[in-house]
């Protein structure tokens, strides 16, 4: 099938290729929205890619007081990793250093999964013997004394083995500014999709990579086919009208969540139109041989 054009934007006849991952989610609450977000943003910092960060994490959705266990504003945070052990390690380090420390915070399970990960049942040792265990309505909480009162933390949270990491699409535009506008529109739309996160800075990656490189030990390196400055030098994927490419990378709790997020993001870019935003949309893959999950762009159109 040839490339199609929707609302003046060229949609490449290609697909995104994604992988199975392990994921968990927690709900962080705080006395107000600002501090719920602060704790969530801090614990999801330096969590853009498993290549160098050990995990990929971001805020999934913000929760109003009516949707949190303690009636305070909150955020649902999702964390993705390649293995259960690494996910457990990242979860405890991040909650221990970034949520436990954040003023007025509390932390709850955000996922019911096939297995459990330790949360409060490990962090409780911060209490040095003064921690209190409470089982309320079938849920187990630990109360750890801290300097502004108590840190309340659910004992465990769920783990899913059915998560998907690496759903993606490329937003390609005539200028950096237009590419950014289009990518921001996509990120805003994906923010409303439950169960999907965009872990890169502000949800956008500008250094989309290929696997390996010419230097020994490089797991990933420049994707020169999409680098506009190398357009005449290498076998480029870019036409003369493209001067900036931004990638939206999506991790989802399920295959469906990733597909829904891609659809929402692509729809937002298409609605923005080629004059203000992108002129072309593509996606990254490895020929379809490595990833278990394939998202064909033509299936993701609004």
């Amino acid at each position: 099938m040839p490339n199609v054009s929707v609302n003046g934007i060229v949609i490449d006849d290609t697909f995104a290729e994604a992988f199975g991952m392990r994921a968990t989610a927690i709900i962080i609450t705080a006395p107000n929205r600002k501090w719920a977000r602060q704790a969530a943003i801090t614990m999801t910092g330096f969590a853009t890619s498993v290549i160098g960060c050990g995990c990929e994490a971001a805020i999934d959705v913000e929760l109003p007081p009516s949707a949190t266990p303690d009636g305070r504003p909150g955020c649902r945070v999702m964390i993705f990793a390649m293995g259960t052990d690494e996910l457990q390690k990242q979860l405890l380090n991040r909650v221990g250093q970034c949520v436990l420390t954040s003023p007025g915070s509390a932390c709850f399970a955000g996922l019911e999964g096939s297995a459990e990960l330790k949360l409060g049942s490990a962090l409780r040792y911060f209490g040095d013997g003064w921690q209190i265990s409470k089982k309320i309505g079938g849920r187990h909480f630990w109360r750890v004394p801290v300097m502004d009162g108590e840190f309340l933390c659910e004992a465990t949270t769920g783990l899913t083995k059915g998560a998907v990491g690496g759903g993606n699409f490329f937003v390609m535009a005539e200028s950096s500014a237009k590419a950014l506008v289009a990518a921001e529109a996509a990120v805003a739309a994906i923010g409303l999709v439950p169960g999907a996160i965009v872990p890169f800075p502000g949800g956008i990656a500008r250094s989309g990579s290929k696997i390996g490189g010419k230097y020994k030990g490089m797991i990933a390196s420049a994707n020169e086919a999409y680098a506009p400055t190398l357009r005449g030098v290498v076998r480029s994927e870019l036409g003369s009208d493209i001067n900036a490419v931004l990638e939206i990378v999506i991790d989802g709790e399920t295959n469906d969540a990733v597909a829904a997020a891609m659809k929402a993001g692509i729809k937002a870019v298409i609605e923005l139109g080629p004059k203000r935003g992108a002129v072309r949309i593509s996606a990254g893959n490895y020929g379809g041989k490595l990833g278990k999950f394939i998202y064909s762009l033509k299936d993701m159109l609004p």
Partner: peptide, 17 residues
């Protein structure tokens, strides 16, 4: 009398039950 999330949780549980 510091603020207590536990108090909020148990209050909500008692009402929900």
């Amino acid at each position: 009398a510091p603020e207590s999330v536990f108090a909020a949780i148990i209050d909500r549980h008692l009402i929900a039950e």
